[in-house]
Structure formats: structure tokens, C-alpha cells
Write a protein that binds this DNA or RNA. Sequence first.
DNA 1: CGAAGTATTGAACATAGTCAATAACAGTGG
DNA 2: CCACTGTTATTGACTATGTTCAATACTTCG
Lengths: 247, 247
Amino acid sequence: MPIGHYPHHDLMISKLENSFRLSTEEKQALRELPIQLDDVKANQDIVKMGDQPSRCCLLLEGFACVYKLTPAGKRQIMTLHIPGDIPDLQSLHLKVADINIASISPCKLGYIPHKEMYRLCERFPNLTAAFWRETLVDASIFREWLLNVGQREGYSRIAHLICELTLRLNAVGLAKDNTFRMPISQAELADASGMTPVHVNRVLQALRADGLIISDKKQITIPDWQKLTEAGEFDPIYLHLDEKAVS
Amino acid sequence: MPIGHYPHHDLMISKLENSFRLSTEEKQALRELPIQLDDVKANQDIVKMGDQPSRCCLLLEGFACVYKLTPAGKRQIMTLHIPGDIPDLQSLHLKVADINIASISPCKLGYIPHKEMYRLCERFPNLTAAFWRETLVDASIFREWLLNVGQREGYSRIAHLICELTLRLNAVGLAKDNTFRMPISQAELADASGMTPVHVNRVLQALRADGLIISDKKQITIPDWQKLTEAGEFDPIYLHLDEKAVS
DNA sequence: CGAAGTATTGAACATAGTCAATAACAGTGG
DNA sequence: CCACTGTTATTGACTATGTTCAATACTTCG
């Protein structure tokens, strides 16, 4: 079958191939996965803490996030998810969800039953490794965010976050000419960076004033990648991408 | 072979069994893993960012940590490791280390070649799942630390960190009567909590004054578990332990 | 148009950081 | 066992980054 007849599967495949050489057979098996499509509105919970999901969810369109709440009600966004990501791959081996997953913008989701994933992993140890690796990259991103929130001040923190998004969106073709849609409110940025919305607003103004970002509605342009990475102390090693530099 | 003849292997096995029922055959295979012992002094790097390790390292005695540095030289400790942990299981599938691993106290390590781990995983898919799950629990701890650092103030942050250590040490028999050794300096606590050593010192004094912890040298006693968990807003779900409550 | 959500502003305040000095402690060799 | 040395803990005074509260504008969208 030609590529393109299975756009949903191919999104996942191209992400996995970022790091793993997959055989034709493996790719074919991936394309045979049943995917149940679903659309959700913005700000909908997709997985809730305590859930025991029986399927994984592939993000096909839109932005989503993983978050946790403190008992006092404060929210920390742990990572952002973009098309191609599988936000709760972890549910394959952690039966009880310790996180919440929510849409940020309207999203298109594809659900894949755990059962099918297990079957696939049994047949293709190489795919097990590829999925395992995906969860390891997720963990690496959590660590970098921890570094970001724990050790950098607001200005760098936001710059870093934007750098990461740029590279990741670029890797799935959703950023062109250092420009992309970022349908994330300042309140959400605040929850992602461990700051208040008010402070995020001021930091964004500073970044704009310094010419590090240009924003028009939800569209972001990065006029000087070099300067932004310096401000964010950004080193992409933790993303474990191929050598896909941003010019 | 009776349990106890392989104390190093059995430490790992009992940790894995926390969550997975292992067959006799699987346990035997684990015991047959070659483990190369090594002793390291306190504050030694075990793995460095950029390394491409060819073996995993099992922590047999002592405390270790995973940390990252910002280019500006600030250090964030991402997690603490205690005996039974395998700090760099991730190196099985992430070829280039994106973290540093260091001893905190003098440590005894056991190195296991990747080659042997791959062989084991090939033979026993169930062990693959068990190891994969370990890395997922590590990721869950990163997330909780991110929540901790991003959303809680100093007092709760330190309380939370102590709660986590108590439960984890308890799970491997290193805490008795809510008392355990914690050979961690205030500077290290600071790096783990995203605070300055000065502030950590003041928070510890407050925790002592409030009767939440009693500390004698490097020994910690928790006189009132209930109160400490409240102060730290601590919910152990993220550790994915068996129901091993602390009284 | 109107309502709801989102962004922006200002002023007062608080948590935590910085700097710098001193005290306590732990490990070493004589 | 003690003096010596380097590390770790503690304290105070000052500062700064970021928060809180509250009001006002701007968007978006039915």
C-alpha cells in the first residue's frame, strides 16, 4: 500500500522512524492497527487521574497536555503534546493513571486498544523497543522541564518552552519558516512554566520587546533562533531527535 | 538455589516483583545475570551527559541522584536513587545520555552489560515489560517532582520530598519505625527542590519546630506521618507501589 | 450585539535569593 | 586523642523575582 492511504498510521510511523529503522513488515503491521477516531473540543479531559484505560490515544490534530493538580488545586502542565504523539503510552504498563491528559485546542484523537498494542509488541520486539523509547523520550522531556522550572527564571523559562515547541512542531512539519500556530493561552503557559498568568504576560512582553518572538494572535514567529536559544539556554539533546536543525 | 545466595540479584528481583509476578524461570534468569561490582566514593559522577554507556548500573548500597546542569551552571537534581534502583535503565534505548548520574554517599554499584539485558528481554517478554515499567515509574517520579517544584512553596516541597523518601526506603527495608538515614546535604536538598541552601536550612528548621521531622546527624525520624503528608500534600499514587502503607 | 474568556496594567506584598560572616562537624594525620 | 582542615549548617540584613488583587481593555464567537 502506498504511503498516504493511512495518514493517521503514517503520522505515528514517521515519528517512530525518527529513531528506529522499521522494517516493511513492521510498518505494515502498524498500518493494520485499528484506530478509532474521535474529536474533542478544547479543554476537555481525555484521561483522568485514577482511570484505568484499556486503550492508548494517538494525537492526530491539535494540542493537548499532561497535567497534575496539587490537592490545593494548583495545576502543573507536565508536557505539551502535538500531532503524532501518543500521550498515554505509559498506560500500557501502569494500570492506574497518575496524570490527567486534556485537550488544549480542539483535537482529533485516534484510540488504539491495548490488546492490539500487546499483540504487536509480541510479534515485533523491535516495535516494543520503539514504543519503549518513545516513553523514555517523554521522560527526558519531563526532566528538562523540571530543570527549566527549578533552575531558570521566568524569562528563560518561557524562551526555552518556545524553543522546544518550535523544534518538535518542525519535526512533524507544523512549523514553516520559524512560524507556527501555538493555540495556548497565557494561563496555560503559566501552568506549564510554574508562573502566574500575570507574570507570563509580562515576560512575553519582554520577549517581544527584545525581538525574540513576534506574535500575531495565536501565531508565533521566531525572527532570531540563535538569540532565542541563548535566552532559553536551549540545548535540544534531550529531545533525542535526528539531526533536524532549525536554520 | 535458595534466596539469599544472590543478594545483589535478589534486591533487583524483589523490586521488580513489587509490581510484576515473575516466574521461577524468570527469576532464575535474572540471577544468572553477570553483575560486575564497583565501589564509588561520595559525589562521584557515574554517568555523564553525552556518555554512550554499554551497561546498566544497579545501585546496591548508598544514595545516588540524577541531575542536569543549565549552561549557566545551576544544578537540578531530578530524582534520588536508593538501593535496588537501576538509575540508567533508559540507556538501553537512549544511546546518548541526556543526564548525569552521581553518587551522593559512598555507593556500591553493580554493572550489567546491555548485551545481557537485551538477551534477557528477548527470552522473556515479561521481563521486558517489568523493566519498561520501572522506567515508567521513574518518569512518574519526574512528573511529581515537576509538580512539586512548579506549584508548591518551599515548606511543602521539602515535606513532600521527605515523604517520598520514607515510603521508598520503607519498601526496600531501609526505614524502620519511621526512621532512616538520609545522607544528603542541605545543598543537595536545595538542588533537588529548586531552592537555595539558605532557604532549605530555614525550611528544615521550620519543619523541626513544627514537630514534623526530628533529625539527628543524617538520621531522620518522622513523629507524625499524617501531619507530614498533609504539609507535603503527599499522595503516594505516583510511586505505583503495592499497598505498603506507612503507619 | 453581548457574553465569556483572554490579555494587559498598576500597586502592594511575599516568598525566596544573595551576600557575607560565623559556628558546628567530620575526617585526617600525628 | 587532639589539632588541623575542609565541608556543611546556621544566622542576619538586604534585595529581587514573582505573586496577589483588582480593575480595565481586548477578542472571539454565537
